[in-house]
Design a protein around this nucleic acid. Structure first.
Lengths: 208, 208
DNA sequence: ACCTGAACACCGTTCAAGT
DNA sequence: ACCTGAACACCGTTCAAGT
């Protein structure tokens, strides 16, 4: 029962695992203290307060997301691989990613990926403002996609959605479309195809 | 100072304006009671509890987002107009939209728009699973975009982002790109171009 | 340098009691 | 049917006091 002196690292680790598993709402200072076997106030000595504790966890997450290695033969394929990797990494830390989002740090988290994308745009022959716009379009799409699919996964039973579409006039003219929309989304495939379509659209035309 | 008997409507209105202006965290039952000039417990009689009060506000938001009227000559133009309208409506209610998102109801909020998009895909000659996939790709993109741009707007000063890219090796080979990425995003234009590129990509090729 | 318990000012919610 | 105050069980945080 002798307890080696509490460290900041220890506090962060315990808080991190708590947040990863049950989300930030599950992190109470009193609960964390109980888990660590110390007084609540000790935690304050090490990490300041609850908000800066969460900030530290977020900072750590941003750093972890920093490594990107594009794979594939063509620039388009490598862009898709960057998108895919990012999506996987983001999905592995849903609560922490949500917190990064809440703190408005998604951008910073994305910087290394942005640089990788710049490189691929150059390889694809895009330059200047046009390339910059394409990089941002992809970045927005990937981050947005992950935010949306997280949302869908946490959604309570999508009550009216399916039947309503089954009965929509447009759908009745096209039963196979109605069937497709009533079926659950294949998120991996939708992601792959969306990215592919966007990249194709960007590399082909686009506008200035 | 005589107070006409409190109504559920009155509670929702006061709570709604509070949330619209300062976000859900600013809504405390005690504070709301003070604003309404009643006892805290009266509110409970009318709306159950805090959570169902917020649920009611969210429900109302979902209903308000239900009207969509596509404009434009070509299907592609009408799709873009739907996207644009949705974005505007979503941006007008940031806090409430975030709450819809948190409750996983974004999908349901989007159903009318989805039906409009189905109609346009048909007009563009897409059918069946292919059309369904295109509708979803656009839906994901618009919702995702709004989520991302809200995030950016609330972001604290994007500390290292600009300079780092200025110094990146890739950027130095392409100063006009570096300049473009260092400049603030023109979110309206990026949105318009992203949607246009995605729609073009979807209508052209796409994959099965 | 690190830890502690007591106390403060907040929460949301319940409940018995009023009219 | 509607409203009330008191009370409960929680919060995060501060602070003076310990070692």
């Amino acid at each position: 029962m002798t307890r080696t002196s509490l460290t900041r690292e220890e506090v962060l680790a315990a808080a991190g695992s708590l947040v990863r598993q049950h989300g930030p709402a599950a992190l109470t200072m009193r609960g964390l203290a109980a888990e660590l076997g110390t007084a609540v106030t000790s935690i304050y000595w090490h990490v300041g307060n609850r908000e800066s504790l969460l900030d530290a966890l977020v900072e750590r997450t941003v750093e972890e997301l920093g490594e990107i290695r594009p794979r594939g033969r063509t620039p388009a394929a490598r862009v898709v691989s960057v998108a895919r990797t990012l999506r996987r990494e983001l999905r592995a830390r849903p609560h922490l990613i949500a917190m990064v989002h809440e703190r408005g740090l998604t951008e910073r988290m994305f910087l290394p990926a942005q640089e990788a994308l710049v490189h691929e745009m150059h390889a694809a022959g895009l330059r200047g403002a046009r390339a910059a716009q394409a990089v941002r379009a992809i970045q927005f799409q990937v981050v947005g996609y992950v935010l949306v699919e997280r949302n869908r996964e946490r959604a309570p039973v999508q009550r009216p959605a399916e039947e309503e579409l089954w009965h929509a006039a447009a759908a009745e003219q096209d039963p196979s479309l109605a069937r497709a929309l009533a079926a659950p989304v294949d998120q991996d495939r939708l992601f792959a195809e969306s990215v592919r379509a966007l990249v194709a659209g960007l590399l082909a035309g686009g506008g200035t």
